[in-house]
Design a protein around this nucleic acid. Sequence first.
DNA 1: ACTGCCTGCTCAATCGATTCAGCAAGGAGG
DNA 2: CCTCCTTGCTGAATCGATTGAGCAGGCAGT
Lengths: 346, 346
Amino acid sequence: MSGRPGGVKAVTLADVAAAAGVSVSAVSMALADHPRIGSRTKQQIHSLAEELGYVSNSAARSLRSQRSGTIALIVPNTGQHVFGHPYFMQLLVGLSEVLNARGASLLVSTNPDERHGVVAYERVLRSKAGDGAIVASAAVDDVNVLRLVDSGLPVVLVGHYPAIADAVSVAVTDVEGARAVTEHLRLSHGLKNIAHISGPMNHQTSIDRLAGFRAGLGRGAGKALVVAGDFGEESGRQATRELLDKQPGLQAIFAANDEMAYGALLELRSRGLRVPGDIALVGYDDFGVSRLTTPALTTVSVPASEVGRRAATRLLDLIEGIAQVGQETLPVTLTVRESCGCPNDT
Amino acid sequence: MSGRPGGVKAVTLADVAAAAGVSVSAVSMALADHPRIGSRTKQQIHSLAEELGYVSNSAARSLRSQRSGTIALIVPNTGQHVFGHPYFMQLLVGLSEVLNARGASLLVSTNPDERHGVVAYERVLRSKAGDGAIVASAAVDDVNVLRLVDSGLPVVLVGHYPAIADAVSVAVTDVEGARAVTEHLRLSHGLKNIAHISGPMNHQTSIDRLAGFRAGLGRGAGKALVVAGDFGEESGRQATRELLDKQPGLQAIFAANDEMAYGALLELRSRGLRVPGDIALVGYDDFGVSRLTTPALTTVSVPASEVGRRAATRLLDLIEGIAQVGQETLPVTLTVRESCGCPNDT
DNA sequence: ACTGCCTGCTCAATCGATTCAGCAAGGAGG
DNA sequence: CCTCCTTGCTGAATCGATTGAGCAGGCAGT
């Protein structure tokens, strides 16, 4: 009723209590819908709180209830790294969707710089700023992940961590996906001398995709040539240079992600090699890039936003005490476009 | 010294105090480097705190100090919308960089669904979960933005809000950018009958780019044909269909962002029209997409991560009481590639 | 009429860190 | 020798919400 001017005056429980002529406890209990508060009083307090614009102070609530209503996304990397990759975008879409629906907030915790591997973990782990954490994109040999899981704090890992097999995690069938795309090159197109540009080998994703690649080659598929990149476009280009120099009869390249595949495409093109005419090329991830290139990239679609959704759901359940069975694995799907040699059907 | 087992036992100030044999106050003051605490005691407390793994409880600290150390990114849209657009990614890169460097955290506040326009604002505004807010991608007619700014809470707006001219904001020179790219088409390539696919007209960005387009046409540049899209790829394709049907002598299309330009490219291609041979095409934003298409898209590069960096810096300064002059505008740059008709220099 | 129980609220402790007033010990100054 | 100041710490209040214990009044049962 009274026009509130500009000042930031916080409305506390005490204000509502004073207005209603009851105690602070009564207001707190009324708003929490406690059965021992009369329904007429509840009504009155609710409308009064609404009118005064009362919103519970999150710090006080967190302190008392020992719960913040916030979950942290921990990424042991710099912000540049995180938000630069569309993978995280997709993951965030899924996370935010579930968190919003269940009234939780999202705290994003990246690392100030590459050195402080511990900072991102500790900040959340100890300060109780988050009720739980989702860890994405950690290296397989990152001991902090183990520490975090061991600490007893609710944690959901995104991706496989064989070293922490009992942790709650959400991953995708990378081995199968890599195998499928490799077999597509080998069996559907009859290609031999297929090379793989892998990701950094301290990430399980890279390990799995490499394993799938090897499995997909079967035996007698010629030599398996592998060069490691870092998931960045330029490293894909560099790796392609190496491959072309080392391997004369190269017929196909399977890059462990689309960005490296795009780098490969640039290098092949600059050498006058046609894709897929001279060399077939496939990527992995399908986060937008692959749709745009010419030729459109055959790739493996990773359901990253679904991974985010599942991870958030399981973490919130975990926080609420609902037991979670260990690993959950979502299927990836082969998305055939043109760069493998299949006909264009746009 | 004693191996800590799995349990989540919080180490509080009291624990450190007990171990050091001093009062809680002394520990608090020592860690805050208060001058009235002896340097020897400080040393001892610091190492003891380190050893016990003490981390201050963020809820308690926030409650007492009335400051959360967190800033909120408010986006009056769903998570899907936010993280789906590379613009936000870039913005987040800049934000997280500055926040990390200055010890602040990032709370991402999206909306559960399109209806609840108020939710995202109120949650942060009232609960004191954040010390300040950065508002991005709000509609020009969103009254909640005005309310938020009026509330006295530190707020930095991303983009122009002519209706709230006195607010602290960080924007880019969209009018000039749109004008430059339009003039490039008109003057460098001598094109006439240039059409514009605009964004949704309740966003200032769309308004500014349209204004720049009009300015760039000058007079006597033929008819200015404008069709509105929604910044999505499909709407670009749809708009292009309309344009081609309505306007026989069309020589160039300027899409208000790259994704719509990509949609336009698909439509042009499917009709057998060559770009830039038959029709020149330019976009706006330059967030990755434009580099990948064939032909590579001429566009206007928006320094979104720098916008994020500036917005975060100014917000933190504002929170610390450093007065901020109103609007700040960062320059965009014309990035010439191939789709306008310029030679390929890859 | 007395006990027991239910209803509807109030009191006070509590979460953990911060901060100001205050107090004891020691040295300087008169 | 007494006062005053400085140094180095302790005690207690405080931030705002939550929650179990407690208490007053009303009603039913015997």
